[in-house]
Simulated assay, not measured.
Amino acid sequence: MASEEEQGGCRTRQRFEELCQKLNMDEGAKCEAWASYESISRKYTLEGEDLHWLACALYVACRKAIPSVGRGTVEGNCVSLTKILRSSELSLIEFFNKMQKWADMADLSQEFRERTEKLERNFTVSAVIFKKCEPIFRDLFKDPQEEQPPRQHRGRKQR
């Protein structure tokens, strides 16, 4: 009979495979992400949802430079962060928190860390702007039906 830890590992692997299938992940990034996850999970205790840590591993694997058919290289395999987060049910804020820890555990390059930090700063700025502009937007683009008072129904004959 398999131990509880082995069953948990099989369940995690199955969920990872399902996630990769949803994302239409290429085999190279998939294998790299799983190997990275396994290596780090042996060295560190990963608190929280395994799938969230796997999302971090996938993000890193997806952002590696890939030689392209044309000139130069393409950054990543075109799997968007939004799609990774939606498929793994991970919020952007949680992702940034976990990604900082993942970068330390995986000893990611300074350049990769800076790009992730820039992404986080851009999100923060956008969130602040959205928070300020949302009430203005709602005032400008009100539903015309909301502005009018409800009509009073009158009978056919007026007396």
Score class of each variant (00 low, 15 high):
E89Q: 12
L119I: 02
A127E: 14
F95H: 03
Q14D: 11
P67Q: 13
I129C: 10
A55W: 01
R71E: 10
P67W: 07
Q110C: 08
E134N: 09
T73R: 12
R154L: 14
E4M: 10
T116S: 11
I93Q: 13
D26S: 06
Q21V: 03
F130T: 11
L119K: 02
W53H: 05
T82V: 11
I40K: 04
L19Y: 02
E89Y: 06
S39T: 09
F16M: 07
F16P: 04
Q148M: 14
E120T: 00
S36H: 09
Q152I: 13
T116G: 05
E117Q: 14
E147K: 15
D26G: 06
S3C: 11
A35S: 15
K83R: 15
C20I: 00
E114K: 11
N24A: 08
A57C: 13
E147F: 07
D50Y: 09
N122Q: 12
E134L: 15
C78F: 07
G9Q: 15
N77H: 08
Q110T: 13
Y59P: 00
E114Y: 02
T82D: 10
A65C: 04
R63M: 12
S80Q: 07
K118M: 12
S68Y: 06
R113A: 05
P150V: 05
E49M: 06
K142C: 06
H153I: 13
Q110H: 09
E147M: 14
R13V: 08
M105C: 11
T73I: 07
W102S: 00
T124S: 13
E47L: 13
K30L: 05
G9K: 10
K83P: 00
G155T: 09
K98H: 10
E75R: 12
K83W: 04
P149R: 14
A127C: 06
G28Q: 13
T12G: 02
G155N: 09
S126N: 14
F96L: 03
I136M: 11
E27P: 00
K30H: 03
P149E: 14
D26P: 01
A33V: 02
T12Q: 07
D104W: 07
T82I: 07
E111F: 06
R154Q: 13
G8K: 15
F123M: 05
T45L: 08
E117M: 10
E6C: 03
R13A: 14
R63K: 13
G70C: 04
A103T: 13
G28E: 14
R86M: 10
V79E: 02
K83T: 08
I66V: 15
A33G: 02
A29H: 01
R113I: 05
K64D: 06
Y37D: 01
E94H: 10
S126L: 15
I66L: 08
E5Y: 03
Y44G: 00
V125A: 05
D139R: 15
L108Y: 00
G70L: 10
G9P: 00
I136H: 12
K118R: 14
G72C: 10
K142R: 15
P149G: 04
T45E: 03
R154T: 09
E5D: 09
G155I: 04
L85N: 03
F141C: 12
K83Q: 13
S41Y: 04
M25V: 11
E89F: 02
E134K: 15
K157M: 07
E32D: 04
F95Y: 06
F123T: 04
Y59D: 06
E47R: 15
G76D: 01
D107C: 12
S88G: 10
C10S: 07
